[in-house]
Design a protein around this nucleic acid. Structure first.
Length: 280
DNA sequence: GCATTACCCTGAAAGC
DNA sequence: TGCTTTCAGGGTAATG
């Protein structure tokens, strides 16, 4: 389940493989993802365009395209959903099932593939100038690894909400990029219960949570993400952060700090894992 | 504003 | 063993 560290790892592994390359061919499965894949629009945006940059915005990837003859440039907006993969592989490699988009890269035999069994992802082309106002990106909150994500600002977000910490932090409109795994891990590190109401968190604990969020994300990126089932980077390599999780997916197992069994509760139809003794 | 629920989808795991 | 059911989850929309 790709969250910020996984998407960042995909972006980093993608750059050396695709930046500067020209797209010469587009093929699609015809199946809809979270949004319909507009084959004709993709074709117009991609064929003949050069990949200029790969960026991450929250859990989204933005692939900026460049065409010398164009007055307005295009971009690809990609969300990996639950099970999406972006892979650069030789075109001769058999395409796995659920390959929804394949972009053939010129001057090599490689292609960039978007594979997504559960089809919760997004793969659309749009004008680069429309990125900041498109439905997906305009609602996103601050990136937790950016300089704009300060402890003060974060405390302000918490103070302004009566929601439970877990559901608030999963809401991309406040902090963009956190998902189930890293919210659970950050809350454990800050010793805060996922059920704690945000407004009740004082400045000191807010600062601790702010630091914990940045730490768990930074460490996970260094470990190239958390691979439970589907996630791999653009080279097909799994991450290893799953070996270092403190609470996520560890229901019933002893807390690494106090040995109390890790508890699972459901909040907003998502599992929360926490230590009932360490986290208050 | 917020919580809850349903939906999209498939594969893995559990249950029988 | 093999079939059926349940569950997982990111984002969105509808409802209360």
């Amino acid at each position: 389940m790709p969250e910020l560290p996984e998407v960042e790892t995909v972006a980093r592994s993608l750059r050396p493989r695709v930046v500067g390359r020209v797209i010469e061919r587009v093929e699609t499965s015809g199946l809809a993802l979270r949004k319909p894949v507009d084959t004709e629009r993709l074709h117009r945006a991609c064929v003949g365009a050069r990949v200029e940059q790969v960026e991450r915005v929250g859990k989204y990837l933005v692939v900026r395209l460049h065409r010398d003859s164009a007055s307005e440039q295009d971009a690809l907006l990609v969300h990996l959903g639950m099970s999406g993969q972006l892979l650069v592989v030789p075109s001769s490699t058999p395409r796995p099932p659920h390959t929804h988009v394949a972009l053939g890269l010129a001057s090599s035999s490689d292609e960039l593939r978007y594979v997504d069994p559960r089809r919760f992802g997004v793969f659309v082309a749009l004008r680069a100038g429309a990125l900041s106002t498109c439905d997906e990106l305009r609602v996103l909150g601050v990136d937790p690894l950016s300089g704009a994500f300060t402890a003060d600002r974060f405390h302000g977000v918490l103070r302004a909400s009566r929601r439970e910490l877990k559901t608030l932090l999963l809401d991309q409109q406040h902090v963009a990029g956190l998902g189930n795994i890293y919210v659970c891990e950050a809350l454990f590190r800050a010793r805060l219960s996922p059920r704690r109401h945000a407004v009740t968190v004082g400045a000191q604990r807010a600062a601790a949570l702010h630091a914990a969020i940045r730490e768990v994300l930074t460490e996970a990126i260094a470990r190239r993400g958390t691979s439970f089932s589907d996630y791999v980077d653009a080279d097909g390599n799994a991450g290893e952060n799953q070996l270092h999780l403190a609470v996520y997916g560890r229901e019933g197992q002893p807390c690494r700090a106090c040995q109390t069994p890790v508890r699972r509760v459901v909040q907003g139809a998502r599992s929360s894992f926490y230590c009932p003794r360490c986290q208050r």
